[in-house]
Design a protein around this nucleic acid. Sequence first.
RNA 1: GGAGAGGUGGCCGAGUCGGCUGAAGGCAACCGCCUGCUAAGCGGUUGUACGGGUAAAACCGUACCGAGGGUUCGAAUCCCUCCCUCUCCGCCA
Length: 425
Amino acid sequence: MLDLKFVRENLPAVEEALRRRRAPASLGGFADLDRKRRDLLVKVEALRAERNAASEEIGRLRREKKDASGLMQQMKEVAARIKEMEAGLPEAERQMEEALLNIPNIPDPSVPEGAGEEDNAVVRTWGTPGAFSFPVRDHVDIGAALDILDFDRAAKIAGARFCLSKGAGALLERALINFMLDVHTREHGYMEVLPPFLANSASFFGTGQLPKFEEDLFRVAGTDYFLVPTAEVPVTNIVRDEILPADSLPLKMTAYTPCFRAEAGSYGKDVRGMIRQHQFNKVELVKVCRPEDSWRELEALTADAEDILKRLGLPYRVVTLCTADLGFSSAKTYDLEVWLPSQKRYREISSCSNFTDFQARRAKIRYRDDASGKTRLAHTLNGSGLAAGRTVVAVLENFQQEDGSVVIPEPLRPYMGGMDRIVKR
RNA sequence: GGAGAGGUGGCCGAGUCGGCUGAAGGCAACCGCCUGCUAAGCGGUUGUACGGGUAAAACCGUACCGAGGGUUCGAAUCCCUCCCUCUCCGCCA
């Protein structure tokens, strides 16, 4: 959420940001709405002031055992008028709130303007896609041949867009998760947290998934609970409604969670395999920091996620999402894209974003500034480090051998009982 | 699921028969004084949001004592609904 005063005073800039994002939402009514709301507020507050003064006077008179019935009679009328005027306030405020909640974050000036994926800017590329001397298979075929991925039975159990990992496949994903968590906690300085996998609506408002994107979520029927689509939601909300001591910043947390996404509107997209699932595993990185540090922290967080890919030896590139591709709450996002030999292209495996104070304002995540003693909104960031399911895909595809086996990257072997290769049992 | 207790400012904690409580007291923090230094001691300051006001302040107003509604001239205090936390019992991984 943007600051109301900021929007009011910078309407053209906000409209320009919307235009850059290709978000057609018009702010035409905003100024009027704001004006109307404030006019009403001023009138109501004046009446309340009158009532408060009179009430105090009545209290004084009664203590002095004097007659106050006249004043009380008068105030009865004022009270009625207040009630009448107040009636319009909630609606005016609701409209303002709604308008404000639906304005996305303002893209950082360094974000390239663009209309879609094709306008994302490649920042750097690491590694070289392997050359294969045999016909490359995709992870679905590899997984079926090795009997480690079973999409048919997953469909029986749950439906489309679910996966069942078995044997070395399940072990591989668990190893990846443990490896990622260990690197981030022991070497990158993150604190591991294991949060609830369901969160209430207040948390989803805090990080910006609600009210706009409810259709992307799974809701537990008849409750206020939603399945988390990313650990960002429970982890960032750890500090919702809190004033943090300045010396506790930056807060760096990492969490493994499954992620649940409705994938509404993605029919026909990535239907094959485990690229796009209703449920997938992910290790997330979350930071809460001072505003002046957030851009530096974004670079560091992105590097932490990249480190996993490097250690696994997976070729990847980093792109800056263009304005149209940028998420609602984000001011700037780097996507990490891993090379998939079967698709002969790079696919998203991590998304690292600086939300500036956008989430912090919604979630009331603040800290006390040492110098001024005042509370200030913190900045929040997060990034995948990494999406485990897609990492499994990348490992299977990039390290497949002609004989159908898959070589396990060195760093994962200790997590897999020394296994260095997945072969057909 | 059953029974009970409770939700007040950065934290702890008091609020009497509704008015003088934005809220005692304490802690913490900050600024002075004192001190060779530190500690102790003494004096003072310190909530948030919105609106008005200002060049910016000062300042003024309104709201906020879990959330929402009600009673009243006036509610942290009374009534209703809901949410959450804790304790005990039951059930259970």
